[in-house]
Design a protein around this nucleic acid. Structure first.
Lengths: 345, 345
DNA sequence: TTGTAAGCGTTATCAT
DNA sequence: ATGATAACGCTTACAA
């Protein structure tokens, strides 16, 4: 791995000149094309790749960003990641990806790792832990730019990019309503989760508009402890046991919907013939579930892309010593109709 | 962000002493406990975190490893990643994760990115592209340690960690056979794929032992172009249209199995009552599919962990200037019985 | 027991 | 139009 000094010797010039040519610095206009060509050719010939670390040392810019995931096995994270990777591709930044696995210990350790590595910012994919103010403190005290994906937050200094959950909830009930459903069961997200609250607001808002009445006995809440697949399964069984009739079920997310469909299958009911089911997120598996489910799509790739964009703005502002207001970007979700919902009757 | 010099001034010592204390170098034993304590306390008080880049500059060790993924939205990759992240957690190495998305252009660019960043090695998650010898050449020429996960390869200099596909195929048919199935349909992987060939060898080997006859008319092959979910769906419909009877289906992987189950559902057949279906991989979705599928589990986390272990050995050998033989580790798969297979009759 | 100084590979500034 | 030099922040011989 050749250094710039060696390369300079090869072409009979000083490291300075070579550096200037290769970085097309302003002064370079005064250098004759012939010389420049010679340098570039040699660089290519010897496969010269400048060592980034001295540059980092001087400039203080590491061109790296920490990506903190709550759980990489969660399809939601994965798809957001695609958006992140894709946008980063063009930026010259490298991602340092760390998976918290919902462990506070790992969170702490990984935040430290990132700080040690002098990342220019952190992009976090929604996680309850990330909101622990004690932990945010670490970040804020160091003034590191941070962008949170998927969790609505007005925390000062924390940027966020998230889906319009209220509209999402609204669209979901509306769809069921338009298919003729009037007895609708709801499985809300875990208590205290902002997303869930917002979605519920959307649902209530549509119900009011349409004159749809919401039966509290058909309104359940997910337990936090278990995976939403399992929780969806059990909650649905409970719903079925209650003997209260309903023709449609609005689930908190896709995994919950999967669990619900399994529960129906278990008691011999078929979705959507016996009951329509709608999810939320539109993870990849939603397409190939049996049946493929109707859901509210969060544009996850876009969330990732916007987060990167926000981060880049922040990082540049930071080095330009400019203050920049925290951004809170809200994106519209979209109804995706598949085979788990059908017209009543 | 305080430097070691500033910290040294704070405690009234030289940077050297501080450095030695903080790195507990051998000489440090001669330094009185009192001094050491003072240094450590100050480091903590000022939140001193040594800038890693000068160290990298001197030592040539970047403590970073490139992770090249074929497609991060593939659940297989994701689970391998968990194993990688977990093992790396204790090693002090940071992962630079790049998603090729099966694009040769991205591959080239990302390999260059990694080389530019002076990663100490590359862990690749199986991808046909990775095997393109032209591209491997780039890597080999630079003598960068590389470990390939999930693809059997004897390429000189390339280390690999993969599942014993032959045993996997063997176990899968064996399971169906023991449930009483004799008319079994097979959907093999795309032509030219090593994994597929090996699995098939395992299948044939069991068939011979058990005296099971394999009907070539029930033996299909996946087309490469599409996702294995879609391909599984269409291939199964073709199988059903052929009117040839079969009571069980062995699919190339879980996604293929999902597609198959959808195809059965479409023609009104129920799995496993009308036909048993077995997959391969045991991705997370296998657990919550409708029905949850029986499959051959690849220990993906373990594959990731072993790859990291292999990489660490290589990296250490590399810096110790030792030659080390390429490792090819083969891991046993395991049958996981769920609800998509049942006794015949 | 502690300190001085050189060097890792760049790049920016200033000189020629 | 090109080059010498210093500096980024750390570690490590070597010196005191």
């Amino acid at each position: 791995m050749i250094t710039i000094r060696e390369l300079a010797r090869e072409v009979g010039l000083s490291p300075t000149t070579v550096s200037m040519v290769l970085n097309s610095s302003p002064v370079v206009r005064k250098i004759p094309e012939e010389t420049k060509e010679r340098v570039r050719a040699a660089a290519k010939e010897f496969g010269y790749s400048p060592n980034p670390f001295p540059r980092i040392l001087r400039s203080k810019r590491t061109a790296s960003v920490g990506i903190l995931l709550s759980d990489i096995s969660d399809p939601y994270c994965t798809e957001v990641l695609m958006g992140i990777d894709n946008s980063l591709y063009h930026s010259g930044y490298i991602p340092i990806l760390l998976d918290i696995r919902n462990s506070r210990i790992k969170f702490r350790r990984y935040v430290q790792t990132l700080i040690d590595r002098r990342i220019e910012g952190i992009i976090g994919v929604a996680n309850l832990l990330l909101l622990q103010s004690e932990l945010l403190a670490i970040i804020k005290e160091r003034k590191i730019p941070i962008v949170l994906i998927g969790r609505e937050t007005e925390e000062s200094g924390i940027n966020s990019v998230f889906v319009d959950n209220e509209t999402g909830g609204y669209l979901a009930v509306k769809h069921l309503y338009e298919l003729g459903h009037r007895s609708i069961a709801f499985i809300k997200g875990p208590k205290g989760m902002v997303d869930s609250k917002r979605r519920w607001q959307g649902i209530v808002s549509f119900a009011r508009e349409a004159g749809l009445s919401i039966d509290v006995n058909l309104t359940m809440q997910l337990k936090v402890a278990r995976s939403s697949y399992e929780a969806g399964f059990e909650t649905t069984l409970k719903l079925l046991n209650s003997r209260r009739r309903f023709t449609a079920l609005l689930a908190f997310d896709d995994l919950t919907a999967f669990g619900a469909i399994r529960a129906f299958a278990q008691v011999g009911k078929i979705v959507p013939k016996d009951c329509s089911v709608i999810g939320f997120d539109d993870i990849a598996a939603a397409t190939f579930y049996n049946p493929p489910i109707t859901t509210i799509r969060q544009p996850m790739e876009k969330l990732g892309a916007l987060a990167v964009e926000t981060f880049l703005d922040l990082a540049n502002a930071f080095f330009a010593q400019k203050e920049i207001k925290p951004a809170h970007r809200k994106i519209k979700p979209k109804l995706i109709i598949r085979a788990s919902t059908s017209r009543l009757g």
